Amino acid sequence: MDLKETEVLGDAINDHWYYSSKVKAVEKFLGKSPVNTILDVGAGSGFFSKYLLKNTSAKEAWCVDISYPSESDETYLDKPLYLRKAIQPIHAELVMLMDVLEHVEDDIGLLSEYVEKVPTGATFLITVPAFQFLWSGHDDFLEHKRRYTLQQLESVVEACGLQLKKGAYFFGGVFPIAAALRLADRGQSKAKTPKSQLAQHGRFTNALLKGICNLEIPMMNFNRIAGLSVFCVAQKP
């Protein structure tokens, strides 16, 4: 999770329709496989790791992000939470790259680096923003290099030697709304300063968007058509 978005949403992030829906989708997409140690690459605030520490059997999380001003050992709900700028090989059952690969030129190289750091059998959960035609000032603000189709992300995963388990799009329910807004904004945004499109909505709008996304979660495994995010689960053979 990008620290820039944490700064935009502040304390409201836990109830924001986008992130509250996304963490529930993460839990659904991962299933019930037991996890002791999480390695969260490009973790930012550790939002996703903290959710899993609270809501699953996970016992500890290692959050890695080059943006951290310093390294520290913390606790979250009495569970260890380690913040690191880099990490050596680690015995982690779950590796998360939540909207990370789109930030680097060599996405295969970055993913391969972490494939080498974890043991055989480790599960990888990867998300990226979907569809290049949805590019907007939001991507410029977050310094993205690209957006992906589901097939493109699956190709990256397989190129790193991972065994693909499943892939899907999420935020399909709000996809038409977001696509229309982004395409309409594109013609007016060339002279604008890039900025995040995440905002603190009113209670009704936030609840409506959250409700649309929550209805989608039970069916997300089957969505290989469209959405704002691409989800992929893979395993190191």
Rank of each mutant, 00 (worst) to 15 (best):
E74Y: 02
P129C: 12
V64T: 04
L125C: 09
I108W: 00
S20Q: 13
F231P: 00
I177A: 11
E105D: 15
P69K: 09
N214E: 15
A43W: 08
N36G: 14
L209P: 00
L30W: 14
C160N: 06
Y18H: 06
G121Y: 00
K28V: 10
V95A: 06
L153D: 05
S20V: 08
T149V: 11
E158F: 03
C160L: 07
D99M: 11
A179W: 14
S57W: 11
L162K: 04
N206Y: 11
K28E: 14
I90V: 15
K59T: 11
Q88N: 08
W135V: 11
T56H: 11
K50M: 11
L111K: 04
A191F: 13
K117F: 05
C63I: 05
I217D: 02
H103P: 00
A207H: 05
S67A: 12
A180Q: 08
Y114C: 01
D15P: 00
A207T: 12
Y114D: 02
V23P: 01
A61G: 06
D107M: 06
Q151N: 11
L97H: 00
D140G: 05
I66Y: 10
M1W: 01
K54W: 06
E113D: 12
F131N: 12
G31V: 08
N206R: 08
H91Y: 10
P119R: 03
E116V: 02
G42Q: 01
E113N: 14
P218I: 04
Q197T: 08
I90W: 01
N14K: 13
T127E: 05
L150E: 05
V157Q: 03
K4V: 04
D185N: 15
S229K: 07
K54N: 11
V157G: 00
T127L: 03
G167F: 03
M98D: 02
L215K: 07
V118C: 02
K59H: 05
A168M: 06
L94T: 09
A25L: 08
K165A: 10
N55K: 14
A191V: 12
K165V: 13
K166R: 15
G42A: 07
W135A: 07
N214K: 09
V100E: 01
I87Q: 02
F170L: 05
Q88H: 09
C160D: 02
K54D: 13
W135E: 09
P194V: 13
R224I: 04
V100N: 04
V35I: 15
K24W: 07
Q163V: 11
E7G: 01
V35C: 08
T37G: 09
V115E: 03
K79P: 07
T75W: 10
I13A: 01
S72T: 13
K165E: 15
A184T: 12
V64M: 04
K32G: 12
P176T: 07
G31Q: 10
L134F: 08
K28F: 12
N214A: 10
C232G: 05
S189F: 10
R182Q: 14
L215E: 00
I38D: 03
